[in-house]
């Protein structure tokens, strides 16, 4: 049960990453590798604020979001103002962020031991809510803190999803979606496509930075390596979500990314418990995304050939 709750919690936290990747990958059709750097950046900024400066965890978490937005803005400006290929722009910012993160943290890993984090808040709230350190859930003994963390993360992801859904249905959000769909038309209707793109990438990486910040507080440390390969993780979640919802509407897509993230984390947890070597995790994730990307084309081709065969 503890394992399940852990996987659910991490799935919820990484759902924010999936939402960020959804914005860049599906709305703006960019594979934005900035994500790998901005996840760590969010974690690093939150970490140093908590550990070294004892900042209020809510503020420190917000700072993680802002840090991510900053990274996304830089990536966006490289792509628009300087016309650098989006993939390359992402690689540049990600690489630069690696050094930045080491500078921010002062070393490659900072433990949060003793610092007041959102987890410590949850511990207190948990006590308040359940009146004990552990409670009985359908016959399973569950830590009140763990359950509170899960509930809080679920709430946060739900609210974020709702806010995103509402935003993408406003005049501004609709124009941003359209600028991924048909930039020429948006320009002709007076939309500044370049500005939309910068803002979109800022929002996307802001969510990723937030995910990094929460993840670090959940595992109680920030690490310079924690962002590696996370864009692929986000892609996997988005693709699973699309397979499940299969609807082009923005509401379904947002819900899909969240469900995809939680589900993918469950799959990984199960695979690990069945003896998958953690070192192979990234390989398996990459292979999964590869298959998911080529499978539809392959099936279409194979299906067409099968149909053409005389009966």
């Amino acid at each position: 049960m503890t394992l399940l709750i852990g996987a659910l919690t991490l799935g919820a936290i990484l759902a924010l990453l999936a939402l960020g990747v959804y914005i860049s990958f599906r709305i703006f059709a960019i594979a934005d590798i900035t994500v790998d750097g901005s996840l760590t950046f969010g974690a690093a900024v939150t970490g140093i604020l908590l550990v070294k400066y004892g900042v209020n965890p809510l503020l420190a978490t917000g700072a993680g979001f802002v840090a991510g937005m900053l990274a996304g803005t830089v990536s966006g400006i490289l792509q628009t103002r300087f016309r650098i290929n989006p993939l390359l722009a992402g690689i540049l910012v990600m690489t630069a962020l690696y050094s930045v993160n080491l500078h921010v943290m002062g070393r490659s890993n900072i433990p949060f031991l003793g610092a007041v984090t959102l987890s410590s808040y949850c511990e207190r709230i948990g006590h308040h809510l359940f009146g004990a350190a552990a409670i009985d859930l359908a016959g399973w003994e569950v830590s009140a803190t763990d359950l509170t963390v899960l509930l809080l993360m679920g709430l946060l992801v739900g609210l974020t999803a709702l806010a995103l859904w509402a935003f993408f249905r406003t005049d501004l959000g609709t124009a941003m979606r359209a600028s991924g769909d048909n930039p020429q038309m948006v320009e002709a209707l007076g939309g500044n496509v370049q500005r939309y793109r910068v803002f979109g990438l800022a929002l996307s990486n802001g969510l990723v930075g937030l995910a990094g910040s929460l993840w670090a507080q959940y595992q109680n440390f920030a690490d310079a390596q924690m962002g590696i390969g996370m864009v692929v993780w986000g892609l996997a979640s988005v693709i699973i979500g699309e397979a499940l919802t299969a609807a082009p509407s923005i509401g379904y897509a947002i819900a899909g990314a969240i469900i995809g993230s939680v589900l993918f984390r469950q799959l990984v947890a199960i695979a690990l418990s069945f003896g998958l070597n953690p070192n192979d995790l990234k390989l398996v994730t990459a292979a999964f995304v590869f298959v998911a990307l080529v499978l539809p084309d392959f099936l279409a081709k194979y299906g067409a050939r099968a149909n053409r065969r005389p009966a």
Partner: peptide, 26 residues
């Protein structure tokens, strides 16, 4: 037109041609 968006959404863009796009429902 933006192909994946609905007729109504496309017109919501046209109705703001040259105007500030804010957080009004579209």
């Amino acid at each position: 037109t933006a192909p994946t968006m609905t007729i109504a959404e496309n017109f919501s863009l046209a109705a703001k041609r040259g105007l500030m796009r804010g957080l009004g429902w579209a």
